[in-house]
Amino acid sequence: MSLIEFDNVTFSYRAGLRPAIKNLSFTLESGETLALIGHNGSGKSTLARLCNGLLIPDKGEVRVDGQSTRGKNVFDIRRKVGVVFQNPDNQTVATIIEDDVAFGPENLGLKSEEIRKRVDDALESVGMLGYAKRDPFRLSGGQKQRVAIAGVLALKPRVMILDESTAMLDPLSRREVMEVVYDLVRKENMSLITITHFTEEALEADKVLVLDGGEKYMEGGREVFLKSKELASIGLTAPTAVRVADALRAKGLDVARDVLYDEDLVKALCR
């Protein structure tokens, strides 16, 4: 049984409107990381909301751990699927960091001691334990998102979805947040869906799904990123190393076809 399963899902925000997601099927297995790439309006964020039952498909079915999001147990599903949204300011509920992280476990009705433990653990794993008593408003963007991640982590989800969670951050904080996330995913054996239009950020994912206009455009492993032309045609930029390799090839240089990471490029050039 797949952890998340999209079965021919179609969804539109209003009847008659162009569907935001159209006939989409894909699966995410336990422990897998999936990068969901697409330009603005490609249906990425809709997909995140479909995963945890914030939105219910018009046609088809979304199943989390075998349960349909259409059922009455949407609470169970949200426990398993943690979503971190784009704007950290719009997902903080409290004026003290530890209170904010405690919000999820408090909703589960856990005992005070258990909540305390989960909050401390979650803050520890994102490296924010030292800030527990501070006001989240005064943190940097990257720190705010780390707190938001801790807030989701305290629910002990099986899959974490980052819905453009780094889009508002500067490159340095972006990297800092993604490092924390991948560390966590490996350590806790969580699954991960990162939704982004930065291909660079998605390079560590096991699987890649490219959306365009709500439909599946490409699917596969990381080799998808090598197809810079196809990516460019829907407004996405391939990773830097891939583009540099392409440009060099166009100039007649013999560069290997599978250059994906900066290190690959260095290796290919320093042969």
Binding site: L54, R79, Q91, N107, G151, V152
Partner: peptide, 12 residues
């Protein structure tokens, strides 16, 4: 957005 975030964190 805040309501969505709260819902996502199991607020009922």
């Amino acid at each position: 957005e805040l309501a969505d975030a709260m819902d996502s964190r199991c607020f009922v």
